[in-house]
């Protein structure tokens, strides 16, 4: 990890216009990604993690979705404003994505070779034969045994874990600068989860790829990430280096999350902590801290206004009235 910033997301807002109202799935998200960094985005289901990342490569289904504001700066350009053709030359090439469910993310009707080769041919302008050799190399790197044989098979001939390895190989086949992995292990067996995470960590470290890792679980980010963003109801409520977040969590939500991680070093027998209540739905949410109904330290001001992000040092920032002076 260096100090060079390669991706800068600023005040990103993505709204869905639905029959029930405007869903503010992402509402003012800001973060930086450095070269070679691994950044974790943690949050409950529905907090807007996936939408944030689809917005980065501008793949929000429209209608109903629309990027309502903000910037995504990459290589001096604002991805939000790029034409579709310019975007295409970045997708899968400079920024690639891996999705949650490997069982459905590969096209069941096309051979693995077809699916891998088309990306390589498209972005690297190689001929088919070289592209196939490259694809086989990538599969080998991703830990697929006998890749020369397996590359000509169809997805249904692979297990879930194997398919995720294929997805990773495919995602990294054009040497992207950024790999976005959206819950890459949630759909897999626990035993395989660790292998896949190790593979991502290992490969991206070798290739110098920066990673945005989306997950539900603090346990996963702890072992993988340099930096953590905690998302709640479409906003990043706290972000900072992993050690800072775990040692000195500021936001009551982060504190709750950390308390609810099962840990070996704590005395067993204690009941696991869980944050009371449900996350809000993000339709027509008023301008308040969306966490206040579940927060033990809620104050009057929390119901009236959303707090600005405050830098508490060491690259650690938090959006909470406990740390910001109310005007």
């Amino acid at each position: 990890m260096t100090e060079e910033i390669i991706l800068q997301v600023q005040d990103l807002k993505t709204y869905f216009h639905t029959d029930e109202g405007i869903v503010k799935a992402v509402d003012g998200v800001t973060f930086d990604l450095h070269k070679g960094e691994t950044l974790g985005i943690v949050g409950e289901s529905g907090s807007g993690k996936s939408v944030t990342n689809l917005s980065i490569i501008n793949m929000i289904p429209n209608p109903p979705g629309k990027i309502a504001g903000g910037q995504v700066m990459y290589a001096g350009k604002d991805l939000v404003k790029l034409t579709i053709n310019e975007l295409r030359s970045i997708r899968g090439n400079k920024i690639s994505m891996i999705f949650q469910d490997p069982m459905t993310s590969l096209n069941p009707y096309l051979r693995i070779s077809t699916q891998m080769i088309e990306t390589i041919v498209l972005h690297q302008k190689l001929d088919k034969k070289t592209a196939k050799a490259k694809a086989i190399d990538m599969l080998k790197l991703a830990g697929i045994p006998a890749p020369e044989k397996r590359i000509d098979q169809y997805p249904h001939q692979f297990s879930g874990g194997m398919r995720q390895r294929v997805m990773i190989a495919m995602g990294l086949s054009c040497n992207p600068e950024i790999l976005i992995a959206d819950e890459p292990t949630s759909a897999l067996d626990v035993t395989i989860q660790a292998q896949i995470l190790d593979l991502i960590k290992d490969l991206t470290a070798r290739l110098g790829t920066a990673v945005i890792l989306i997950t539900h679980s603090l346990g996963v980010v702890a072992g993988m990430c340099d930096t953590i963003c905690v998302m709640y109801a479409g906003r990043i409520v706290e972000r900072g280096p992993t050690t800072e977040i775990f040692d000195k969590p500021k936001h009551p939500y982060t504190q709750g999350l950390i308390k609810s991680v099962p840990r070996l070093d704590k005395t067993s027998g204690d009941r696991l902590y869980s944050i009371r209540g449900q996350p809000p739905n993000v339709i027509d949410l008023p301008d308040c801290c969306p966490f206040y109904p579940r927060c033990d330290k809620a104050m009057d001001v929390c119901k009236r206004k959303y707090p600005l992000s405050k830098d508490v040092g060491n690259g650690h920032a938090v959006s909470c009235w406990l740390y910001t002076e109310a005007k």
Partner: peptide, 12 residues
């Protein structure tokens, strides 16, 4: 619960 049609955020 049925009568309480609005939650903390004034949402239906």
């Amino acid at each position: 619960m049925a009568t309480n049609a609005v939650n903390e955020f004034n949402q239906q």
